[in-house]
Amino acid sequence: MQIFVKGLTGKTTTLEVEPSDTIENVKAKIQDKTGLPPDQQRLIFAGKQLEDGRTLSDYNIQKESTLHIVWR
């Protein structure tokens, strides 16, 4: 499925993911596209910070959802 990651600059990155992907895995995909290391990424969805060990489905993140990224 496709999801979007929007940064503070307003730039949006598209990712191809599975609902079973962990947040850690998603951060690795973001690094592949942007070069930003996972330890500098904070992902937010529906006002919650996403924890590395959880999956996208744990947070009810579905296709075409938009996550927000904040740099540490």
Rank of each mutant, 00 (worst) to 15 (best):
Q40W: 12
Q40H: 12
E18T: 14
R42G: 07
D52P: 06
L36W: 15
T12Q: 07
I69P: 01
W71C: 11
L43K: 00
Y59P: 00
P38Y: 10
V70T: 11
L15D: 00
G10D: 07
L15H: 03
I69K: 01
L50M: 06
V26Q: 00
E18L: 15
A46W: 07
E51L: 09
L50Q: 00
V17K: 00
R54V: 05
F45D: 01
D52W: 03
I61C: 01
P37D: 07
P38A: 15
L36G: 04
T22G: 03
V17P: 00
E51G: 04
I44K: 05
Q40P: 02
V26A: 02
I30K: 00
G35E: 03
D58L: 02
L36C: 07
I44M: 13
K48R: 11
D32I: 13
S57T: 09
N60E: 06
R54Q: 08
S65V: 05
A28E: 09
S20V: 05
N60S: 08
Q62F: 09
K29V: 04
T34I: 13
V70W: 11
G35S: 05
T13I: 15
E51F: 07
L67E: 00
D58E: 10
L8R: 10
I69R: 02
T34Y: 11
G10E: 08
W71S: 12
T14V: 13
G53D: 12
W71N: 11
L15A: 02
Q41K: 06
K29A: 06
M1I: 11
L15S: 00
Q31C: 09
D58A: 05
E64F: 14
K33P: 03
L50W: 01
F4V: 05
V17G: 01
D21W: 11
S57C: 04
D39M: 09
K63Y: 07
P37F: 07
L56P: 01
K63T: 12
G10F: 09
K63H: 15
W71I: 15
Q62D: 08
E18H: 14
I23Y: 01
P37N: 09
F4D: 02
N60Y: 06
P19M: 08
D32Y: 11
R54H: 12
F4Q: 05
I44L: 09
V5G: 02
L50G: 01
S65K: 03
K11G: 12
V70H: 11
I61R: 00
S20R: 09
P38M: 15
L8F: 12
E51Q: 10
K63I: 06
I3P: 00
E64L: 11
T9L: 12
I30Y: 12
Q41P: 03
I44V: 11
I44E: 10
I23N: 01
I3G: 01
E18F: 14
E24A: 14
E64W: 15
